[in-house]
Design a binder for these strands. Structure first.
Lengths: 227, 227
DNA sequence: CGATGTGTTGATGTGCGTCAATAGAAGTGG
DNA sequence: CCACTTCTATTGACGCACATCAACACATCG
């Protein structure tokens, strides 16, 4: 049926569904091809669907009154987003835009509620997924208020690499200003932090590839200084 | 059965339950009396229960490595909290402490999952509740990164009063440093912002009571300046 | 009435944003 | 394949919003 049917079935939210249930959900689904920077939906838009990312990447963000942007979340292929919108009065609470050439599967929320009610397991998986994002946001709030810019950047590098490694490589697929905004930091500051980490011999940078030379050292730096 | 049974039934999460279902959930519930400042659970504690506030108030917070505190949420009587913990690997992601003399109903999560699975409506209400808090946290993240301290304080005053009123009264039941932390601001700064708003004739302050003299003016101040 | 806790106000410091200039990297077209 | 534009990233100089440190005013309470 859908070209991305298999990939969709692997998404956490849908993984427990029977084939027929999934097909039912996808009956009215359609594929959308999105160009880089193209806006998928705007904050305040009437929400009629949620999305699965078959290919590409998406950023969710908010705009301030003055037009400044804060990236709330960066999503890669295989993720779903805006599922929770079903419960938020039918308006999207954020903007969504493509970071690169992206293929989305747009799933109308139509009778999604009914599906959820009928399928207890799916409701639980959705609760699990939303709870994790809740937890993530709590972490964000904490680090935005209690940690320095340096600590947030260090934390980002650390969580992008396996916890128990002595050294590791981080490949930044997306533009640095997007990552910076996600971390609640200006691009310039992000750049400066990487520079000091490089000068300390904790990392090496070449283009979009960061090599963490001394992971334990980076952890220590994060805990102690952060500046 | 439970002395607070009626109040519990009014909580959003439980309002749709049949009497027997509620009773089933409360079989193993017990009441806890908590003194001001007493810690209910700590971050990282093994999570065995969630809570209903029958009386009093509770703050959820995080601690930084240096011991600084950020209040994530302030909860009043009639609210439930830590429901989502069922889906978070069994550890509380925050601290919880009483703000005043407080009576809690502690509900073991034991067969909560089973109840959820059986009762589709309850799962949906829980999804709705968690989604709202998700939305709230997105707002927090945005205002922490894109708004000034003054704007956050103004926003707080505005959301504590009816939207369409010309003037209004805000009674601050809890200590100002707790509110300040909730807003991501130091107590001194909170105090200073209130002082400038007073000097501008937008509010008057007497003890824990704030009178908003000119709500539209406060909205305008928030939008324009915030400093 | 001292003691302890909570809020206000002043003086000073600083982390990070802002503004600006430059260097690369990448894409475009002849 | 090379000029030319355009975009992203880096680095420096500077300023400001807010934190920090500190002194004081006022409560409340034993």
């Amino acid at each position: 049926m859908h070209e991305d049917r298999e990939a969709i079935h692997k998404a956490p939210l849908f993984s427990g569904l029977f084939a027929e249930e999934l097909d039912g959900l996808l009956i009215h689904a359609r594929t959308r091809q999105i160009k880089p920077h193209e806006v998928i939906f705007a904050e305040g838009d009437k929400a009629g669907a949620f999305y699965f990312i078959a290919m590409g990447a998406v950023r969710l963000y908010r705009l301030s009154a003055r037009g400044d942007e804060k990236v709330i979340e960066i999503l890669m292929a295989g993720s779903t987003f805006a599922e929770a919108v079903v419960f938020l009065g039918g308006r999207y609470p954020v903007y969504a835009a493509a970071l690169s050439e992206t293929r989305l599967v747009e799933i109308p929320i139509g009778d999604f509620t009914r599906t959820l009610k009928a399928n207890g397991g799916m409701a639980l998986r959705m609760l699990a997924g939303i709870s994790m994002r809740l937890h993530q946001l709590i972490n964000d709030v904490q680090s935005l208020t209690l940690e320095t810019a340096g600590q947030r950047v260090a934390a980002y590098l650390l969580e992008q690499s396996p916890p128990d490694a002595q050294s590791a490589d981080v490949h930044m697929v997306i533009h640095k200003n997007v990552i910076a905004s996600r971390l609640g930091v200006k691009a310039e500051t992000f750049s400066r932090v990487l520079a000091t980490l490089r000068d300390l011999g904790l990392i090496t940078v070449s283009g979009n590839d960061i090599h963490i030379v001394d992971r334990p050292g980076l952890e220590r730096w994060r805990a102690s200084v952060g500046t």
